[in-house]
């Protein structure tokens, strides 16, 4: 099978929240097997981009399109996008009191399997798969018996996200500031999970403020988002340069572009 150049195409995407324009014409193509990083200062719109791709309510697309596997996503419900292989690792995973993690994970995996014409997993099959993936993210086995994310530490919540990534095995993983608030050990474990996931048919979009996670997961492309626009794209060296010179440097470069 030949590599798909454009797993997802973001075309001149404009997004508003309550009359405030957050994304002001984003163009981005992610091909199969590619790892892209979106970097930018706080409030630049980088999390918005990840959430809009996943179909989070509350955002209004005012222009442009998002095309995934050749079809527009704009009218597609979030659960359908998820079953089609779009996965969002949340910046702030929510707590679900009384919903057992085990049950939640099984419901999710069965929903995705059902969409793809597969049978639900038996309890035994699921338990085996869960055990395998749990070890990958070094998650405490007791946590899957508890309510989803309830009383989990910040690191445990993020590991739970990566556990879900590993279980659901999507085509496109959107990591929304997965590195924020992680200590170095958790960052290593989370990155390891993502690196195992990576492959010729898997694509990753890493949304991050800091270069740090990119030491562990090497991106093929780095894009810098400032004030709702991608102001610069490059390879992984761009991230290092950004780390060194700070966002003021790219802000400055916008000025240059405008002035020129």
């Amino acid at each position: 099978m030949s590599k798909i150049d454009k797993l997802i195409e973001v075309k001149d995407l404009r997004v508003s929240v309550e009359d405030t324009e957050i994304l002001k014409g984003i163009n981005l193509n992610i091909g199969e097997g590619e790892v892209h990083a979106i970097m930018g200062p706080n409030g630049s719109g980088k999390s918005t981009l990840a959430n809009v791709i996943a179909g989070r309510p509350g955002y209004t697309v005012t222009g442009g399109d998002i095309v995934y596997k050749g079809e527009s996503l704009l009218e597609v419900d979030p659960e359908i996008r998820a079953r089609a292989g779009i996965f969002l690792a949340f910046q702030y995973p929510v707590e679900l009191p009384g919903v057992r993690t085990w049950q939640f994970l099984k419901s999710a995996i069965d929903a995705v399997r059902k969409e793809n014409g597969k049978d639900e997993l038996s309890v035994r099959e699921f338990d085996q798969l869960l055990e395998e993936k749990r070890k990958l993210v070094e998650m405490d086995p007791d946590l899957v018996k508890r309510s989803v994310n309830e009383g989990f530490s910040g690191g445990e919540k993020k590991r739970n996200e990566i556990l879900q990534l590993a279980l659901l095995d999507p085509s496109l993983a959107l990591l929304d500031e997965t590195d924020s608030g992680l200590d170095i050990d958790a960052l290593r474990i989370v990155s390891h999970g993502v690196n195992i996931f990576k492959g010729p048919e898997k694509s990753v979009l890493i949304v991050t403020h800091y270069q740090r996670i990119l030491d562990y997961i090497t991106p093929d492309y780095v894009h810098v988002l400032v004030d709702g626009r991608i102001v610069r794209s490059g390879d992984s060296k761009l991230a290092l340069e950004l780390e060194e010179k700070g966002y003021e440097w790219v802000r400055g470069s916008i000025g240059e572009e405008v002035n020129s």
């Binding site: 309510p57 419900d77 659960e79 998820a82 679900l96 419901s107 995705v112 879900q164």
Partner: peptide, 8 residues
Amino acid sequence: FYLQQRGI
């Protein structure tokens, strides 16, 4: 949304 994003 969290649950929907997981396909439910």
